[in-house]
Simulated scan of single mutants.
Amino acid sequence: MAEPFPVWNEIRSLGEAVPTPWGGWLLTGFDVCNQVLRGRDWLVPDFAWQARQPDTERWQAPATQEMSRTLSRLNPPMHTHQRRGIGNLFDRAALTRLGPMVDGHTTHLLDELAERLARGPADFVRPVGEMLPIATIGDWLGIPPEDHRYLVELTHDQAHAQELLPNKSQLALSEEATRQLRGYFTQLIAERRTATGEDVLSSWIRTWDELEPDRESADEILYTLTMFVTVAALETTTTLLSTVVWRLLQDPARWDWLRRNPEHIDSALDEALRYDPPIQLNTRIAAVDTELAGIPLAKDTMVHVMYGAANHDPRANDNPGDFDILRGGNHLTFGGGIHYCLGAQLARLEARALLGQLLERFPTLHTPGAPHYASRMVFRRIISLELAV
């Protein structure tokens, strides 16, 4: 988990599509992964696909069922219907409105970090990396600040259901977290109905009450959208924030150079996304009998897009093992096609604000040691990252 690059390289040496013991294929090449992410003949594993599997028990876990109702596990036309209902969440106008709020949250969290660093080395992840995304999405949806930490912890547990091969104990944790998330957001929606305002959730309530005359159906869609957007915004962005800080601090000269050249912050973010993506892999299903990387694949065959391996494909990026801020290279970290990450621009906004203030306020920032990682295959998660000045 700490340094997956040798594993990616070893798998890639076996081919662009490598068979797995569970009947799927690991995809390692940049072009092949890009083809699957953007191709119309590749679907996400929705309820219809799950029902056709011989081992349906694997897909019956409550948390797995819950996530299968969200945008990330919907195919057209259901995906199209929900996607149109929420529009372009983070367009330029929305980001302009959110910018001052994100800057304010960043300043507040770094004030608290500065107080801790004045007393000695301090963790970055729990007080800053985990809290900036929930403060942002919480303000956006109107979630009370006193509930932020609670939702962060539930999100960590719920993510187990989205792992490639979760065990029973992980699924139990995810099931309980999912139950609590459903209760929380169902109540939040009910309370907002009694006092709608100008927040995003109020806007969604008005939209879906028009699109879905049946109140129960509208509430179910509102729940899945609100829960999914929150969970998606927290887990991946938290890892991005911690990862970019860690990768920049691995080389003190790199941190110092970027501090003196802050106009390249966006380039540093893209290189961190390429070099060490927050999501290791994602799954797609063949919609028809097809051929991929010269291999015939039957309809319903499962393939796993390995983002890190693809981003480190030397045919797409020269010397991919080097962290090069000025690379200007390619990466697939935000996905592609209709399932391109909804919150990509929001994540960039948060990371840009955080890096800009960190570089300005902590010129001598360094890390006494490497971060600690959770044991996961899909969602990369840094548990702690100690910093010092």
Rank of each mutant, 00 (worst) to 15 (best):
P4M: 00
W8A: 01
R12E: 01
G15V: 06
G15Q: 07
T20Q: 13
P21Y: 11
L27Y: 01
G29Q: 09
D31M: 08
V32T: 15
L43C: 02
P45L: 05
F47K: 11
Q53S: 03
E57L: 14
Q60V: 05
S68N: 15
S68R: 14
R69V: 04
S72K: 10
Q82A: 12
G87T: 07
R92C: 08
A93C: 08
T96M: 12
L98N: 06
P100K: 09
T107A: 15
H108A: 15
L109V: 05
L109C: 03
L110W: 02
A114S: 09
R116Y: 07
A118R: 12
A122Y: 02
A122H: 00
V125H: 03
P127G: 05
V128A: 03
W140T: 07
P144L: 11
P145C: 06
P145F: 08
E146V: 12
E146R: 11
H148C: 10
Y150C: 02
E153Y: 08
Q158R: 13
N167L: 03
S169Q: 12
E175V: 03
E176A: 13
T178Y: 03
R179L: 12
Q180P: 00
R182L: 14
Q187T: 13
Q187F: 11
E191W: 04
R192K: 15
R192M: 09
R193E: 15
T194G: 11
G197E: 08
G197V: 08
S203W: 11
E220R: 15
L225R: 03
T226F: 13
M227N: 13
M227A: 14
F228A: 15
L234T: 02
T239S: 10
T239Y: 01
L240Y: 05
R247I: 11
R254S: 12
W255N: 06
R260C: 13
H264G: 05
A268G: 09
D270L: 04
E271G: 01
P277G: 06
N282E: 12
R284M: 03
T290I: 10
D300I: 08
M302D: 11
Y307F: 15
A309N: 01
P314V: 05
R315D: 09
N317E: 04
P320D: 00
P320L: 00
I325R: 04
G335W: 00
I338G: 00
H339D: 04
H339M: 05
A347I: 08
L349K: 08
E350T: 09
R352P: 02
L355I: 09
T367N: 03
T367S: 15
S375T: 12
M377A: 14
F379H: 09
S384I: 04
